[in-house]
Protein backbone atom coordinates (compact mmCIF):
# COMPACT_ATOMS: atom_id res chain seq x y z
CA UNK A 1 0.00 0.00 0.00
CA UNK A 2 1.20 3.46 -0.88
CA UNK A 3 2.14 5.69 2.05
CA UNK A 4 0.08 8.88 2.34
CA UNK A 5 3.19 11.02 1.92
CA UNK A 6 4.38 9.24 -1.20
CA UNK A 7 4.33 10.94 -4.55
CA UNK A 8 3.69 9.02 -7.74
CA UNK A 9 6.88 8.86 -9.81
CA UNK A 10 7.12 7.05 -13.13
CA UNK A 11 10.44 6.17 -14.72
CA UNK A 12 10.82 5.27 -18.38
CA UNK A 13 13.73 4.75 -20.73
CA UNK A 14 13.54 6.40 -24.15
CA UNK A 15 16.63 5.84 -26.28
CA UNK A 16 19.61 7.09 -24.32
CA UNK A 17 17.53 9.08 -21.84
CA UNK A 18 15.91 8.05 -18.59
CA UNK A 19 12.81 10.13 -17.94
CA UNK A 20 11.58 10.64 -14.37
CA UNK A 21 8.03 12.00 -14.10
CA UNK A 22 6.72 12.94 -10.65
CA UNK A 23 3.00 13.66 -10.32
CA UNK A 24 1.61 16.01 -7.66
CA UNK A 25 2.85 18.67 -5.24
CA UNK A 26 6.44 18.25 -4.06
CA UNK A 27 6.80 19.57 -0.52
CA UNK A 28 8.56 18.52 2.67
CA UNK A 29 6.30 15.49 3.07
CA UNK A 30 6.90 14.22 -0.44
CA UNK A 31 10.40 15.29 -1.46
CA UNK A 32 12.02 12.22 0.22
CA UNK A 33 10.08 10.00 -2.19
CA UNK A 34 11.26 12.01 -5.21
CA UNK A 35 14.79 11.97 -3.82
CA UNK A 36 14.72 8.19 -3.62
CA UNK A 37 13.46 7.89 -7.23
CA UNK A 38 16.12 10.27 -8.53
CA UNK A 39 18.88 8.52 -6.62
CA UNK A 40 17.87 5.17 -8.06
CA UNK A 41 17.58 6.61 -11.56
CA UNK A 42 21.02 8.16 -11.34
CA UNK A 43 22.49 4.81 -10.44
CA UNK A 44 20.88 3.28 -13.55
CA UNK A 45 21.42 5.97 -16.18
CA UNK A 46 24.54 6.57 -18.25
CA UNK A 47 23.64 9.34 -20.70
CA UNK A 48 20.86 11.74 -19.88
CA UNK A 49 18.38 12.09 -17.05
CA UNK A 50 15.24 14.11 -17.82
CA UNK A 51 12.94 15.21 -15.02
CA UNK A 52 9.54 15.99 -16.52
CA UNK A 53 7.73 18.40 -14.18
CA UNK A 54 4.60 18.81 -16.31
CA UNK A 55 2.42 17.27 -13.59
CA UNK A 56 4.00 19.09 -10.65
CA UNK A 57 1.83 22.12 -9.88
CA UNK A 58 3.72 23.06 -6.71
CA UNK A 59 7.23 22.67 -5.37
CA UNK A 60 8.83 24.13 -2.24
CA UNK A 61 12.49 24.51 -1.31
CA UNK A 62 12.74 20.88 -0.16
CA UNK A 63 11.85 19.80 -3.71
CA UNK A 64 14.35 22.27 -5.14
CA UNK A 65 17.00 20.94 -2.75
CA UNK A 66 16.25 17.42 -3.97
CA UNK A 67 16.87 18.50 -7.56
CA UNK A 68 20.07 20.36 -6.61
CA UNK A 69 21.35 17.21 -4.93
CA UNK A 70 20.45 15.20 -8.06
CA UNK A 71 22.23 17.71 -10.28
CA UNK A 72 25.40 17.46 -8.21
CA UNK A 73 25.29 13.67 -8.27
CA UNK A 74 24.64 13.72 -12.04
CA UNK A 75 27.68 15.92 -12.61
CA UNK A 76 29.86 13.56 -10.61
CA UNK A 77 28.59 10.66 -12.76
CA UNK A 78 28.97 12.62 -16.04
CA UNK A 79 25.21 12.44 -16.58
CA UNK A 80 23.35 15.37 -18.14
CA UNK A 81 20.35 16.38 -16.03
CA UNK A 82 17.61 18.34 -17.81
CA UNK A 83 14.35 19.70 -16.35
CA UNK A 84 11.34 20.13 -18.62
CA UNK A 85 7.63 20.97 -18.49
CA UNK A 86 8.01 23.38 -15.59
CA UNK A 87 4.80 25.20 -14.62
CA UNK A 88 4.95 28.93 -13.84
CA UNK A 89 4.60 28.51 -10.09
CA UNK A 90 7.42 26.00 -9.98
CA UNK A 91 9.58 28.12 -12.26
CA UNK A 92 9.13 31.11 -9.95
CA UNK A 93 10.80 29.34 -7.01
CA UNK A 94 13.78 28.50 -9.22
CA UNK A 95 13.96 32.16 -10.20
CA UNK A 96 13.68 33.37 -6.61
CA UNK A 97 16.50 30.99 -5.62
CA UNK A 98 18.43 32.06 -8.76
CA UNK A 99 18.71 28.43 -9.79
CA UNK A 100 17.09 28.97 -13.18
CA UNK A 101 20.58 29.81 -14.46
CA UNK A 102 22.17 26.77 -12.85
CA UNK A 103 19.84 24.06 -14.19
CA UNK A 104 19.26 23.16 -17.79
CA UNK A 105 15.54 24.00 -18.13
CA UNK A 106 13.62 23.50 -21.37
CA UNK A 107 9.92 23.61 -22.27
CA UNK A 108 9.26 20.06 -23.45
CA UNK A 109 10.50 16.46 -23.42
CA UNK A 110 11.43 16.81 -27.08
CA UNK A 111 13.63 19.79 -26.25
CA UNK A 112 15.12 17.90 -23.32
CA UNK A 113 16.36 15.11 -25.55
CA UNK A 114 18.16 17.59 -27.79
CA UNK A 115 19.91 20.13 -25.54
Amino acid sequence: MREENDIQVSIEQIDEALIVTPVGDVDLSRSPCLRQALKKSLSDVTGRLIVDLTDVPYMDSSGVATLVEAMQLARRNSVKLVLCGMQDQVRSIFEIARLDRVFSIVPSREDATQV
Binding site: V64, V68, Q72, I96, A97, V102
Partner: peptide
Amino acid sequence: LDDVRPGGLGVHI
Protein backbone atom coordinates in the same frame (compact mmCIF):
# COMPACT_ATOMS: atom_id res chain seq x y z
CA LEU B 1 22.86 31.99 -3.21
CA ASP B 2 26.09 31.70 -5.21
CA ASP B 3 26.93 28.73 -3.02
CA VAL B 4 24.81 26.22 -4.92
CA ARG B 5 23.98 23.36 -2.59
CA PRO B 6 20.89 21.55 -1.35
CA GLY B 7 18.93 23.30 1.39
CA GLY B 8 19.03 26.61 3.19
CA LEU B 9 16.73 28.47 0.79
CA GLY B 10 13.64 28.77 2.97
CA VAL B 11 14.47 32.05 4.70
CA HIS B 12 15.59 33.63 1.43
CA ILE B 13 12.30 32.67 -0.24
